[in-house]
């Protein structure tokens, strides 16, 4: 079933990306188009085929020892932050405007 502009808006909301109302139709078209392009993935006989979630290599139980290393000095930690306050990162009201 094809996605509507409303569906596209919900998907964008979830991914926290604002959209222009005017672009919603185009966005829905793109998603519908892609889902159709990708549809062959559903047509294989995959009965009993294990998925490969992780790529190749010796990839089990890879862990590190519980030994402290260096952390970032505070200047570097905050260096790229658009808004800080003292040693903190700062964000505007979390609930405000969403009542």
């Amino acid at each position: 079933m094809a996605l509507t502009s409303d569906d596209a808006r919900r998907i964008a909301d979830y991914a926290r990306i604002a959209v222009d109302e005017g672009d919603l139709g185009q966005l829905a078209d793109y998603l519908n188009n892609m889902m159709e392009t990708l549809a062959p993935i559903k047509e294989f006989d995959l009965e009993g085929v294990e998925p490969t979630f992780h790529p190749i290599g010796d990839l089990t139980n890879v862990m590190r020892e519980d030994e402290p290393g260096k952390s970032l000095p505070i200047e570097l930690a905050l260096k790229n932050a658009p808004q800080t306050s003292d040693r903190y990162f700062r964000v505007p009201t979390i609930l405000g405007g969403q009542e």
């Binding site: 402290p68 505070i74 040693r87």
Partner: peptide, 19 residues
């Protein structure tokens, strides 16, 4: 490998991974 401690100054135990 940042220190696991709750008593240090704000944003003291942070690194590229946990940030």
């Amino acid at each position: 490998s940042c220190k696991n401690s709750s008593t240090d100054p704000v944003n003291q135990n942070v690194c590229p991974v946990c940030l």
